[in-house]
């Protein structure tokens, strides 16, 4: 990519990243949440790959990591939900953490934790999808 794209990416990628994190963390207060924020995070990663593109072989070897992040965050989500079977009213997806005051950043019990797990999972999944498409394109060019 050209120098302009690289420079702009260097400036803006951190902002995009922080914005994604903000949307994820405030998921229980404002519109957005895990999915939207995760998509923004994935956008930051994709921008980096597109601007500073690595050779195809290196991308291929990196392809495994998003998949592992995805699995781990989903496992975390399931474990969080399953702990509810043992606590309180003893049902799956029980919201067992203290609820706090409406409008606070730390409130709504488990929901922010679910949002974070979903955010990581969506970011990893969308990054993996786009990475796979980039690799296809690079392979087809040869």
């Amino acid at each position: 990519m050209s120098e302009i794209v690289k420079t702009v990416t260097k400036i803006i990628v951190g902002v995009i990243f922080i914005y994604g994190l903000y949307i994820i963390v405030h998921g229980h207060l404002t519109p957005g949440g895990g999915f939207a924020g995760g998509a923004v995070l994935a956008g930051a990663f994709v921008l980096l790959v597109l601007a500073y593109g690595s050779p195809e072989t290196k991308l291929k070897s990196q392809k495994e990591y998003p998949a592992i992040f995805e699995s781990l965050s989903l496992l975390a989500f399931l474990v969080l939900a399953s702990i509810g079977i043992g606590l309180g009213i003893k049902v799956f997806f029980n919201n067992y953490l203290p609820k706090g005051i409406v409008g606070d950043l730390v409130s709504a019990g488990n929901i922010p934790l679910y949002n974070m797990a979903i955010g990581i999972e969506v970011a990893a999944a969308m990054f993996a999808i786009i990475l796979a498409l980039i690799i296809y394109k690079e392979e087809a060019r040869e």
Binding site: A67, I68, E70, S71, L72, L75, L78, F92
Partner: peptide, 24 residues
């Protein structure tokens, strides 16, 4: 009664454990 969600939890958990442990 407590075992009903297990039918959904167990296959999902194994689906997400496999990509992690499969490397080893």
């Amino acid at each position: 009664e407590q075992l009903v969600p297990v039918f959904i939890i167990l296959p999902l958990v194994s689906a997400f454990i496999i990509p992690v442990t499969g490397r080893f």
